[in-house]
Amino acid sequence: MSADRNNFSFYKEAHGTWYIDLPDYPGPKGDLAMVAGADDMLDYLARGGKRVEVEMSEQPFAGALILELVRMGEPGGGAYYKPVNHSIQSVWLCDVTLFALQKFPEMIYFRAIE
């Protein structure tokens, strides 16, 4: 993820699981599931909806919420983030983050696009 902002779409299926919409991802759909706090954050951003577009950057921008890298996950991979000034305590982002963002940034600034 460069200093530029990136937009990602997420959708919630009828059974309640959130997924990131990454048509070029080479792995199984199950890898794209948002779990372990990421689903709670998406519920918050979607405000009861079933789809949400999220703008992300490594640089602060107006109206952005913040995820701060806490530690790299082991042994299952991924990374744990703490939402700054938010009631959600922990968000785990799986290794699909490396496909989408090319790394696990120290800080991720994000907001739902209205």
Rank of each mutant, 00 (worst) to 15 (best):
Q102H: 09
A62Q: 14
A64E: 13
P26F: 07
G16Y: 04
L101N: 00
S57P: 03
L65M: 14
V35Q: 12
L67G: 12
I66E: 15
A14T: 13
I88P: 03
A100K: 07
V52S: 10
P105H: 05
I113R: 15
D31K: 15
K50R: 11
G48C: 04
V84L: 08
I108C: 03
K12H: 08
R51I: 05
T97P: 03
R51K: 15
V54W: 01
F61M: 10
G27L: 10
E58Q: 15
D39T: 08
V70K: 13
V35H: 10
V91F: 03
M56W: 02
A36E: 10
D95H: 09
G48L: 06
E106D: 13
A100M: 04
N6A: 14
D31E: 12
K82W: 06
L65S: 12
H86K: 11
G16F: 03
D43I: 05
V84F: 11
E106K: 13
W18E: 05
A100D: 01
A33N: 04
F99I: 02
P60C: 08
E68L: 09
I20M: 04
L45E: 10
K29Y: 01
G27M: 13
L65K: 15
A38H: 05
L93H: 02
P28T: 13
L98K: 08
G77W: 05
V91P: 01
R111G: 06
V35N: 11
G73I: 06
M107I: 02
E53F: 00
T97Y: 06
P26G: 10
M41Y: 01
F8V: 11
D4V: 14
D43V: 06
M34K: 12
G73F: 05
F8H: 10
Y11N: 09
P83Q: 11
L67K: 13
K12M: 09
G78R: 12
F10L: 10
Q89G: 11
F10G: 11
A14R: 12
L93A: 11
P60S: 15
E74N: 07
Y81L: 08
G30S: 11
